[in-house]
Each structure stands twice: as C-alpha cells, then as structure tokens.
Design a protein around this nucleic acid. Structure first.
Length: 648
RNA sequence: GCCGCAGUAGCUCAGUGGUAGAGCGCACCCUUGGUAAGGGUGAGGUCGGGAGUUCAAUCCUCCCCUGCGGCACCA
C-alpha cells in the first residue's frame, strides 16, 4: 500500500498508509485523544473520523475544545437524534431535511397532525434516552440505486427526491445512529454519548414549505438550539430575554410612541412622543441631505396606472400595490390608479420636466417619500415591516462615468449618518448580475467594477453576493450590527439604467445630442418606521438625548416647589429642550420610577432645598447616583448635550 | 399568501354553557412625601366580527378579521 504524508498543526509530519482514517491517526497519537476526538480538519475541510485520507494532507484532530467543529457536530448530530426520536414516537412521520442553523438546527417532518408543545417535551425526553444509550455513529457510502431502493421500501418519498437531487459525481452517504439511519453528507460524532444531554432545547414548531418552495407541501418544522454545555444554553436564554425586553412593540407602548389597530393593518398611528422622534430624525436627515448636495422634492401618492405600466411596476409589482379605482359616479370616466409603492417613476417625471443638460448632472433628487405597499399579511411585523411607510429615498441621475464617484460620495454620506446615529459597525454587500437580466455583459462588468472601486476608495471592504443583483443592475447593501449583535440591512444603493430607458429620460450632452442618464436608487435608513424600530431596539428605548421624545422631567418633591419647577422647565423649554414639569400629588419615588420606566433621560428633582439654593438634583437615566447643579449650569449643560450630532 | 397558536377593562392576564374578575393605569379624596410603586373610594368591558347549535353562548361549531412564531415574499 502506498504511503502518504500527514502534516500536523505543530508542523510535524508523519508517513502513514494511504486510506488511513483520522480515527486511526488519533489512536496513533494517543488512545486518550482517540477517545476524546470528535472530527478532523483535513486540508481545511471538516472530516468525519471514519473517512479515509487518500493523499498527502494537513490534519488536525478536533475535540470538544474546538468550538467551531464542536458546535457544528453537536447541532448536526442532534438534528439526527431528534429525527430518530420523532420516528421512534410516531413511526408514520416522514423525514426530510435537518440542517444546522443559527444557534441550533431544525428538521422538517411530514406529519398529518401538527406537533404540539407537549410533543416537544416528549421528543426531548426521547432524545435524552438516545444520547444516554451512547449509540455508535457509523458511516457508509451507498450506490445511488441502493439508496433509492432503500428509501422507496421505507416509504420515505422526500429522501428519494433528495437522493435524486444529489449530483452524479458526489458520494451518497448514509449515517447510522444505532439502528436508525439517515441520508447525510456528514461528518458526525463517534457516538451519541458525545452529545451534551443538558445543553439543548427544542424551541418551537412552525410550518415550512418543502425545499422552501411555496408550491410544494407544507411540512412541520421543529427548531432546536444547542450549545457545548449548560451554561452556554443558559446564556442563550438570558440573551433571548434581553432581546424580548428590547422589543419595539413593547417599548412603543410603554413609552407611548405609537399604536396600530386592525382598521389599518400595517400602518402606524404615531403618538406625540413617537412623532417627535420621527420629525427629529427627519430634520436631521434633511440637513444631511442639503449638505450632501441633494435637492428635495415631493411627489403624488395616487398615480394613474399608465405611469406604472410605463415604468414596468404594473407588470412586475402589481401584487404589492394598492389599486384605487375611481368610479363613473364620481369621475367622468373610470380611472384606475395605484398608491405609489416607490418614488422612482415620479422622480423621473420631475427629471423629464424641462430639458436637462449634462451640466445638471449628477442631479441628486431626494424625497421623504411616503409609499404604500400591499405586503403579504404574514410579512407584517410591528413598525418594522409595514404597508405604509416613508423612505429616505433619493435618485441620483448621472452618467455611467459618474457612477463610481457618486457611489463613493454616497458611502461617505452614509458612514457619517450611521456614526451619528450610534452605529459603529456595519458592512457592505455587493450583489452582482443575476441569471435573468437585461443589459450587455460589458456594461455589467463596468458597473460592478465601479461599485467595487467606490467601496475601496471609501475605505471599506465588501462581500460579494453572487447573482443577487436586480435584473437591471448591481447593488450595494449596507447592513448594520446592533448593540446585541443582530444585523439589520438598512442602506441600499442600486444602479439602474433600465427605468430611465423605460420612461425616456434624457439629457443634452456636450455634443448637443440626447443621451440617456443612469439612475442610482439609494437610501440610508430605508424607512423611517423600520429605522426607528431599530433605534428603539438598539438602545432598549434609551435613545440619545437629542432623539429622546421627552428629554427632561422636572419633578416636584413637595408642592411648595411647584412654581420653581415650572420656572426650571420654562428655562429649558426656552432653549428648545423638551422639558415638562411633573407637579402631580405623588411621592418622588413614584415619579422617579415612572419616568425611569418611561425612559426619560433626565429627571430634575426639586424640593425646598433646591428652591432656596436655585439648584436642581439631577438624576440621569440608568444611574442611581444623583448630583446637584445650579439652574444656570443645568440649562447650559443640557442645551449643549441635546444638540443633534451634526450641530455640535 | 401558507402552517400553528392567540384575541376578555387603556396595559398584563385569570375565569365560567346561566351575559365577568385581579393587579397596574385612570378619576376623586386623604397624604407634602428627598430619588424605582403611600393609603382610601370610584368609574371603566357588546369577552375581535358574523353565522350556527342550545331554553340560554364570552365559553361549543363554522366562516372572517387582527396579532404572534415561523415559511414564502421583500420587482
């Protein structure tokens, strides 16, 4: 048998027979390592301990100390253990697929009856039995014909389909957990006893389409989470509770920001507090846009179908549009209109009004554009996914040569805004040409390169999302990370040569001839509704002072201080601070608690001591320690602190 | 849109085949209290909407609406 050379992480090499398995390699190093081993990393690929190595390779034996392979295997093996438990409890259930995802895994089953929460408890118990049985995990490579025959006999139609979907040149691998078997590419642990019986939890059940295709049957999906040990599971549970505390729907109620009701699904009733955040943010964006060289416009809500036909929305986007018919009784003839789902066609109308010269380009046209989209009912979520919303939208009309510099300028613009709003960490994704597309290869080459170059020029790396661009052009997506590590895609920047073509936009070039401009669709926040939701969740309602709807409450400790409290509040209000006096017949404890729960950044308490000294006792949100300040000092301090970041 | 779950006072929730309760909030009274809930009294509900079963429905059945968790969607 021929020899191969294995290279270990410490640089040592060893001659071994070809076809050796990582399990044997581990055994050769130390029997204790062989026992602890969970998998191997061979030439960078994750290997099962039972897979033979046929050629020279670098190898590292993994144990539970190695986080990434350990979690991958724990979650993946638990997916199989769960499927086995389900079939043990309900033999008629058909198994499908069960990948690792997020902090755990899911597995989809075909079962007439949905699973109940009680079922989940039973499944968990059965899984623990399986883990405790320490069943060996075995792997075998089967022929396609054998696999098909086996699954047909077993009555597992989904597995038959999966086998048929495996590419011809790929091995068909079967894994046995004890006497239960599943189709899987592996790798897996040595035996189920390596799984942590106390560090996993089945979380919920949900419907999911087979292969993610809404024309295929809906299956029952069970989600689970798993970690290396019980403490990590607990940490995850704490994290989930933290996330629940930040829920903007809950905070929106507690802070009296907005409400929604069934007569207007997917639309927001902004209360005074919430609307203050909204307008403050909008004022800030308006100043930024003015600085960024944008002109602001405003366009109609209800627009005749003819324009949507011309723009292509009628054909491609009608499902998502609110259609408005005007009846003969009211109009001379029946017309069909739609609420605008996007602003771009209207912006082209403004561009087209009057002749444009190359000297007008780039023309950056911004609108706080109120749009309505008939989003599918299941998609609605608080103020994050709504049917009526306002975008911080703009379209940059420019030449193809200007795309790169305009893109860079936009990235700089967006970076400043994200920084001002407290988001330090964000990433860029570049989506490239999809399979179905318009335009020449050469123009896609040029435009994709322009976007990439602009990112680099602005000093940012980007990740490529192959084939995820729009049919008319590539796009950049800007995703920010919030305080608890969740990601939100907000900013977008899309190159569109198509709409100017469809709506016949043109400008007169230096040569005196008509030319077609390109449009860049771009947004920084996305929508005010969603972005405010993100701001709330990111800050847990503790918005920075300049954005807080109620910035200061002046709370009277005794009623003899009422007049002074009014005076303090008035002095702050005179400086533009959103201050109010709380003169209610309540104890200071009560007032402090209520305004703390209400996330008011500053409480200024005043009793007779403060009245006599003309001071205030300052309590900052989240801090137990109070401090004293004179009236003049606190007015000066808060006036400075309450300035928007761009006005400091 | 699809699967599952839910909808009772402003909020959080309990409850029953004979039309309903708590805590918080709200109003009024007492209390003037020094940094996260002082005490008392009171008002407040077509039990999401419609239909059906029943002597009787908030409760059982069906349809619809809305919300929640996913899936799909996000030209």
């Amino acid at each position: 048998m021929s020899q191969i050379t294995l290279t270990f992480p410490d640089g040592n090499t060893k001659q071994v027979p070809a076809g050796i398995t990582p399990a044997e390699v581990a055994e050769g190093i130390a029997p204790s390592l062989a026992k602890k081993a969970i998998s191997a990393t061979v030439n960078g690929a994750h290997y099962d301990l039972a897979w033979p190595i046929d050629a020279d390779a670098s190898i590292a034996i993994n144990t539970m100390q190695d986080d990434e392979p350990a979690l991958e295997l724990i979650r993946h093996d638990l997916a199989h253990v769960m499927a086995r438990a389900v079939q043990a409890l309900w033999p008629d259930v058909k198994v499908t697929i069960g990948p690792v995802r997020d902090n755990g895994w899911f597995y989809d089953f075909d079962r007439a009856e949905p699973f109940t929460p009680e079922d989940l408890g039973e499944i968990e118990a059965k899984m623990k039995e399986i883990i405790n049985a320490r069943d060996p995990v075995r792997t075998e490579v089967w022929s396609r014909a054998d696999a098909l025959k086996y699954y047909e006999e077993q009555g597992e139609p989904y597995k038959v389909e999966l086998v048929n979907r495996i590419p011809e040149d790929q091995d068909i691998r079967m894994y046995w957990h004890g006497d239960w078997q599943d189709l899987c590419r592996g790798p897996h642990l040595q035996h189920t006893g390596q799984l942590p019986a106390d560090a996993f939890k089945l979380t919920h059940v949900a419907g999911a389409y087979w292969l993610g295709d809404n024309t295929r049957p809906m299956l029952q999906r069970i989600y689970g989470v798993a970690f290396k040990n019980r403490n990590d599971l607990k940490a995850w549970q704490v994290m989930m509770e933290e996330a629940a505390k930040r829920d903007h729907r809950k905070l929106g109620r507690e802070m009296d920001l907005f409400h929604m009701q069934e007569e207007a699904p997917g639309q927001v009733f902004w209360h005074p507090n919430g609307w203050t955040i909204y307008t403050t943010l909008q004022d800030y964006m308006r100043r930024q846009q003015a600085r960024g060289g944008y002109v602001e416009v405003n366009t109609p809500q209800v627009v005749n179908r003819k324009l949507w036909e011309a723009s292509g929305h009628w054909e491609n986007y009608q499902e998502n549009m609110f259609i408005v018919e005007v009846d003969e009784d009211h109009a001379r003839e029946k017309t069909i209109n739609a609420l605008k789902p996007m602003n771009c066609p209207c912006h082209v109308q403004i561009f087209n009004h009057g002749l444009k010269s190359y000297r007008d380009l780039p023309l950056r046209m911004a609108e706080f554009g109120s749009c309505n989209r008939y989003e599918p009912s299941g998609a609605l979520h608080g103020i994050m996914r709504v049917r009526g919303f306002t975008q911080d939208d703009a379209h940059i009309f420019c030449t193809e040569d200007q795309i790169e510099s305009e893109t860079k300028k936009f990235i700089d613009f967006l970076a400043q805004i994200y920084a001002d709003l407290g988001f330090e960490k964000w990433t860029i994704k570049l989506s490239t040409r999809p399979e179905k597309r318009v335009g020449t290869e050469e123009s896609w080459d040029r435009v994709e390169a322009a976007l990439g170059n602009a990112c680099k020029a602005a000093g940012y790396d980007f990740e490529i999302q192959e084939g995820e661009g729009a049919f008319y052009g590539p796009k950049l997506e800007f995703t920010l990370t919030d305080a608890i590590g969740r990601e939100w895609q907000c900013g977008t920047h899309q190159v569109d040569p198509n709409l100017p073509e469809r709506l016949d936009a043109n400008y007169i070039g230096q040569d005196g001839e008509k030319h077609r401009p390109v449009m860049l669709h771009r947004a920084v926040l996305g929508s005010f509704e969603r972005f405010i939701g993100i701001l709330i969740e990111n800050s847990e309602g503790r918005l920075p002072l300049w954005l807080a709807p109620r910035q200061v409450v002046v709370a009277a400790i005794v009623s003899d201080a009422d007049d002074y409290c009014r005076e303090v509040a008035a002095a702050l209000q005179a400086k533009g601070i959103r201050a109010e006096a709380d003169l209610r017949n309540e104890k200071i404890n009560y007032k402090v608690r209520e305004h703390s729960v209400g996330k008011v950044p500053y409480i200024l308490a005043c009793g007779m001591k403060e009245v006599e000294e003309r001071t205030v006792s300052v309590r900052k949100l989240g801090e137990k320690q109070t401090f004293g300040a004179t009236l003049d000092e606190i007015v000066e301090r808060l006036t400075q602190e309450a300035l928007a970041p761009d006005l400091r």
